[in-house]
Computed example of a mutant assay.
Amino acid sequence: MTDNQRKNFGPRLKEIRLAKKMTLQEFYSPIAKHVNNFSPIENGSRMIGKRLSEDVVRHYHINETWLATGVGKIFSVDDALKEAVKNNSEIQQGVPFINVNPSDYSSGEVNFLKEKAEYYVNFRPFNDCDAYLPVYGDSMYPKYSSGEIIAIREVINKDIIQWGEAYLVMADESANNITTVKLLFQHTTPEKIVLRAANPDYKGDTILDKIAIRRLFILKGKITRNQL
């Protein structure tokens, strides 16, 4: 994507944001630390950087061709739906429920999000999420109980963390490939992060180097099967 094409990104990102009825803070805070920088970008007085534009495109599954030219569909089709189109299968609406335990994917390069969905959930408050997953174990009880279904969305900018909120953390070999759902808190050392269980029976914090985090997903909330 050329610099000249990126000049058009700002107004088109504003078009998407307004269509989603989201504020600057809501739309850009999962991606960037300085949200106010996007106001001049949207107004066309400042050009978005290459890395930042890639993060926005990835987070919201935006069609880069439309973003650059205004031609085509606004949103891209993800890998799973591309496969469905190739096989002339019916495209499902909503967010996939993937019946896996992410801890089973704690090592290697296997992406649990590419596993086949059992069904799709069209629940508007969580339709910006990447997947629904079942809860395993009771370390997060009573906030999240075993068997409940959580909605997760990947965090692109790992410097933007909502302290005290629950996240699915997937770490690399330097942290023993730990994969867990925990509440995240600030550490006195900026390069580290505190992982804490919600269940008071699980005592003791886990201290993790931020650099060890391979993937990070915020838990947007949960649903019960009565809502499906």
Rank of each mutant, 00 (worst) to 15 (best):
K114I: 07
L24D: 06
P190D: 08
L24V: 08
K82E: 12
A19W: 06
K14Y: 09
G204I: 13
K86N: 13
E154H: 00
T179K: 02
A68C: 06
K182C: 06
E173A: 15
L133K: 08
V194I: 15
R12L: 12
Q162G: 02
N99C: 11
Y132W: 12
P40L: 07
G204T: 09
I160P: 00
I213C: 05
Y132T: 01
T188Y: 11
A151V: 10
Q227K: 09
I207K: 01
L13D: 08
G221P: 01
I178D: 03
Y144V: 04
S39Q: 14
A166D: 04
V77F: 08
D205C: 07
L52A: 14
L228V: 13
N157S: 12
V194K: 15
N87T: 02
T65S: 11
A175R: 10
L228G: 05
F217T: 03
P102G: 00
N37Y: 10
E118P: 03
L24F: 15
F217P: 01
P134V: 02
G164C: 13
D172I: 00
Q227N: 10
R6H: 10
V135F: 04
S107C: 07
N127H: 02
L183A: 11
V194Y: 07
Q92L: 09
H59F: 10
V155E: 05
I218T: 08
V169I: 15
S53E: 10
V85Q: 13
P102V: 03
N157K: 08
D55V: 01
L81D: 13
G49C: 09
